[in-house]
């Protein structure tokens, strides 16, 4: 199977993962990922829901920090899943903001925490690049850690195990 086929056939993993991230932001505080790091997920100001893979239907976009999520929650009950969102990640006290889509799990508009103060001003171009790469990698590894945690629960059985049961109960407002 080539990359494009895999991308299309398994897109649901991305949709389910992003939906779980939204659930985490509302229902859980910090979670521990592989390697012991603590990560907190914060819902940002953009949320896009679309039909679950294989289904047809319209998309629902929710924008703005103050917006009520009621419409998005209704869309979940109608079987839609998250296709993209803006979220915050707090990792070891460092806060990152990023956009992510379900199809490719590509990190967009990744805003890094400010690099380290007075020391930074003397480190030159090379130092700035290395510092920013370190931070960008931290965000990627945190997200990978979350994806790993998601997969562990999601693949527990064919119905998504306790993880999906919890997401389902949350979506249903139970």
């Amino acid at each position: 199977m080539d990359v494009l086929e895999l991308l299309n056939e398994k897109m649901f993993l991305g949709q389910e993962f992003l939906t779980w991230l939204w659930y985490l932001s509302e229902e859980e505080g910090e979670v521990q990922i592989a390697g012991g790091r603590l990560v907190q997920v914060l819902l940002g100001d953009r949320l896009l829901l679309g039909p679950a893979m294989g289904q047809e239907g319209t998309r629902v976009a929710v924008r703005g920090r103050e917006v009520s999520l009621a419409e998005a929650r209704q869309a979940l009950k109608r079987g839609k899943l998250v296709e993209g969102l803006r979220l915050g990640l707090t990792v070891d006290g460092e806060e990152f903001w990023l956009s992510i889509n379900a199809r490719e799990l590509m990190l967009g508009s990744l805003r890094l925490p400010p690099a380290g103060g007075a020391q930074e001003q003397d480190q030159g171009r090379e130092g700035v690049i290395l510092e920013r790469l370190y931070l960008a990698e931290m965000a990627h590894r945190a997200l990978e850690g979350l994806f790993g945690l998601f997969l562990e629960g999601r693949l527990a059985d064919e119905r998504g195990g306790e993880l999906w049961e919890a997401v389902r109960a949350w979506a249903a407002g139970e």
């Binding site: 398994k10 649901f12 993962f17 990978e144 997969l151 064919e158």
Partner: peptide, 25 residues
Amino acid sequence: PYLLAADLAGKAAHERLEAARPLTL
């Protein structure tokens, strides 16, 4: 995502990953 998932889930979960089908809410 699928290739990343295959790496993260490891060999033990490979069959379950292959067999995974979309879930619904």
